[in-house]
Structures are given as C-alpha cells and as structure tokens.
C-alpha cells in the first residue's frame, strides 16, 4: 500500500454540538485518506472518533453546545493517533460495563454502546485527565501494509 504522506499533524476545534459530528467525521476521513488508509480502516477510525465525541457532548458537556472539542491527529509512518480533548465534566469510562445485547434488551437499556464500539474498532484506547482539568481520550490505529 502506498502512503503519500508519511508524517503529519492536523487539528480541528469545534463546539460541542451534535451538529458538528459530520464535520468531525469529514476531517478524520480526509486525514485517513491522506495516509492511504483502506476504506474499511478509515471507516473504523471515523466511527470510533464519532462515538468518542458523541460521549463528550452527552456526558462531559451534558448537551450544552458551548463546550469545546479538540481533535488532534498525529500520523507517523503506520501509526494513526487521534487525541480528543474537552474541558467538560470528568467521565470515567472504566465504570461503564461491557454491554450484553440480551441483557440490554431485557432491561430496556439504551446507551453505553459507544465505549464498547471504540474498544472494538481501535487498537489502543486511553482515557486520562490532563492539567487544567482537561479530559483526553487517545485513540490509536496501526495501519498495516
């Protein structure tokens, strides 16, 4: 596979509105295409970032559209890293149990699927709290040749 740009960094900052999810997806897709990602891998990264940003809008900012979401992409050789930061409420995804579709059905429970999807779609996922009370989630995908 041909990787046209072997190393770059890009950033997108948007307000915490679900209206901006399409813009975030376009930003990620374009960067993934620039790396020579396959359609399938690009689709996985795009969905994982959408899920992470949707969680920030829902849980960190409680649907207030005035918050800030920063998506920073670092691509180096075969490592595609997306760091997503917000200034909202701290949210610990480790407290969210893995969903069981049958249990969900019985309990009429909806939600919690995003975190599980992110783990399934990406190679590495790490949540942390940074200085200045920022939350960060780092998503990594290794592109295979």
């Amino acid at each position: 596979m041909n990787y046209p740009n072997r190393k770059f960094e890009k950033e997108l900052i948007v307000k915490s509105s679900t209206d901006n999810l399409a813009q975030i997806r376009d930003f990620i897709k374009q960067a993934a295409d620039d790396c020579g990602c396959s359609e399938e891998t690009a689709g996985k990264i795009v969905l994982a970032v959408d899920e992470a940003c949707t969680n920030i809008i829902k849980h960190a900012y409680k649907f207030s559209p005035e918050g800030k979401i920063c998506c920073n992409i670092k691509f180096d050789n075969t490592k595609f890293l997306v760091s997503i930061t917000d200034d909202g409420l701290h949210f610990d995804p480790n407290n969210v149990p893995e969903p069981d579709i049958v249990e969900y059905y019985k309990q009429k429970k909806v939600g919690g699927l995003g975190i599980y999807l992110i783990k399934k779609l990406m190679d590495e996922v790490e949540y942390s709290t940074k200085s200045g009370n920022k939350n960060e989630v780092v998503l990594v995908k290794y592109l295979t040749r």
């Binding site: 999810l21 997806r25 969905l47 959408d50 899920e51 949707t54 969900y104 059905y105 009429k108 429970k109 909806v110 939600g111 699927l113 995003g114 999807l117």
Partner: peptide
C-alpha cells in the same frame, strides 16, 4: 451510508 451507536440505540429503544 453510515450509522453510529446513537442510531442503533433507537432500534433498541423501540423493539420491545
């Protein structure tokens, strides 16, 4: 063309 878990959640919410 595209679905995220928010879309899947709709089907879970109404199927029963």
């Amino acid at each position: 063309k595209y679905i995220s878990s928010a879309g899947l959640g709709v089907f879970m919410a109404y199927v029963e």
